[in-house]
Amino acid sequence: MDKVRLRVSINDRYASIVKLVSGLKIATVCEGALCPNIFECWGEGVATFMIMGDTCTRGCRFCYVKKGKPQPLDLEEPYRVAEAVRILGLDYVTITSVDRDDLPDGGASQFAETISMVKRLNPNVKVEVLIPDFRGDLNALKTVVDVKPDVIAHNIETVRRLTTTVRDWRAGYEQSLMVLKYIKVFNPSIITKSSILLGLGETFDEVIEAMRDLRSVGVDILVLSQYLRPSPKQLPVAKMYKIEEFKILEDIAYKIGFSYVVAHPLARTSYKAREAYYEAIKRLGLSGNAKSSN
């Protein structure tokens, strides 16, 4: 199976992100998940912050993020993330987290505090969050929705049949669909987004079923990407999809009704998130005064 080739290119902007995130003690999913796009994103001065530490309470079998008992919540973290956004001069920020099943609200209040602080210190910034399922706790979900991030992403990750194999036992296909549905119930103006990793053993028809399921709960932006095994501890790759297959699925996704589709082997939920958001709101007729490019 041919592997993806990544050009290791470290420029000054990359080096400045290394210094910033290390200095502010903010975790990034770019590092935590060995993201293949780190050279491109950090080289352009963009990183995806991962709040509530670097250790996840769940054991999804595709994911490289550290698993185990997490550290106590750092109450100054929202401020430090907001400060990092200011220093980097970002006008669009993506924030994700580890799962925190150890916390009563699954970390929803830390998400809300971080979103609020980022917006307070950076009034013009757009905020996209990639959230866990909060074990289906709708009160926790509403805590995040109520502070009005511009985009809320939650990933189903795989097709219905493979969910129990690929994701942690506490995750669920229907539970994730419910989370995505209720974001829109609580606030229809928030753009929603979800990702499917391809290459874990799913069939073409199952991918289409998953896309229809996501669209049925109002998801606006779909991300389709190739699963790449981070280490021998994770699931093997069942199939490497060809670019043409991504294109076919992208066309089907648009026919199903998504406002924007990111379909590429190296796409990840936060990859080119800014572009996806502005294209989606343009197509939804919501662009108003929104800035569509730098």
Binding site: R7, P36, P232
Partner: peptide, 20 residues
């Protein structure tokens, strides 16, 4: 500077290392 000088295979990908 910037020229590929070696390739290293990791589980996830092949890293193309550049001269600094």
């Amino acid at each position: 500077k910037g020229e590929p000088i070696a390739e290293v295979e990791i589980e996830k990908a092949v890293l193309v290392i550049e001269s600094p």
